[in-house]
Amino acid sequence: MVDDDEETHAVELCWSGGRVETIRVGRGETVVDAAETAEVAVPYGCLYGVCGTCIAELLDGEMTHRRSPRALKDRTREAGYVLLCIATPETDCRLRVGHDIQAEVVGTPWK
């Protein structure tokens, strides 16, 4: 990883239990790749934007998806959710992460 503020962005990862970790993510690098390099465990599955295991809520900053985020419905994307396996930061960012976000976003049928 390039340790240069010009080339990387600070991404703050916030878990529901209060834990916070900040990692630096390179230009064009995905948050999952950067987290793996930094040995910070975040949930993920397919690694190509289809399965939604890595879904996170973008609280601050801007991110872009490197390919089509097929796991996200339009309403979910508009509500500010991103897929960390294909998302790269354009600015410093703050994200809410964790395994529980996927179910929270889809809800529970019949309940």
Binding site: G45, C46, C51, G52, I55, A71, Q102, A103, V106, P109
Partner: peptide, 11 residues
């Protein structure tokens, strides 16, 4: 389709 059932069950 995988991109339908992977993310969760939505009625």
């Amino acid at each position: 389709a995988p991109n339908t059932y992977y993310p969760g069950f939505d009625l």
